[in-house]
Amino acid sequence: MDRLIEILEEIKPGVEYKAIPDLLEAKILDSLKIVQLVAELNDEFDIEITPIDVVPENFRNVDTILALVERLSEE
């Protein structure tokens, strides 16, 4: 979780990530930032996030992003 928050902070600093229930609705994550995030997550956690995984449900908040990372790490 901490590393994920660090990555998000690098992409867009100054956001209380844990407190925001919907990062997409709050316009904190857009498509360009999602690509940056995916590149970082793939690199950091040695996973492969594909376009199939890029759906709003997976990027809504830190919990859903973490769940995606955990699911792909297990595969």
């Binding site: 690098e10 360009l32 690509v35 940056q36 995916v38 590149a39 970082e40 690199d43 890029v54």
Partner: peptide, 26 residues
């Protein structure tokens, strides 16, 4: 998110340019 673009991003970041590495694929 294709493999070549992700690889390119990784390559650039390993060269020390994090900003360009993050922005380049997009």
């Amino acid at each position: 998110l294709s493999k070549p673009f992700m690889r390119l991003s990784k390559f650039v970041r390993r060269r020390g340019n994090d900003f360009l590495g993050a922005v380049l694929p997009a």
